[in-house]
Amino acid sequence: MRILHSGTAGTLESSDVMITVERNPEKGLIIELESISEARFGNRIREVITDTLKKLQVQDVKVRVQDRSALDCTIRARLTAAVFRAAGIEKYPWEELE
């Protein structure tokens, strides 16, 4: 999936996460993580983000994550929404998302 511009999804409410996805002019994935759960779940959060981007076939992006103790499924949902917004896609390929 091609990232066209910056896309954000989520909120800063408790149990939620706000994620912004934008193109990384360099190669590779940059994750900027700010989380109150960093000490106990920082690695897990990075893993979920990397994994979700891989499934969405997104590369070379910068992901800013402002986490308020979101669960894995919430992180996946917010990241997916941010990616589609950043890619400007409104026709969702549900078969592939399964």
Binding site: A9, G10, C73, T74, R76, A77, R78, T80, A81, E90
Partner: peptide, 11 residues
């Protein structure tokens, strides 16, 4: 609408 749909779906 899109964000809520993904959230309920994942959850």
């Amino acid at each position: 609408k899109d964000a809520a749909r993904f959230l309920v779906y994942q959850t």
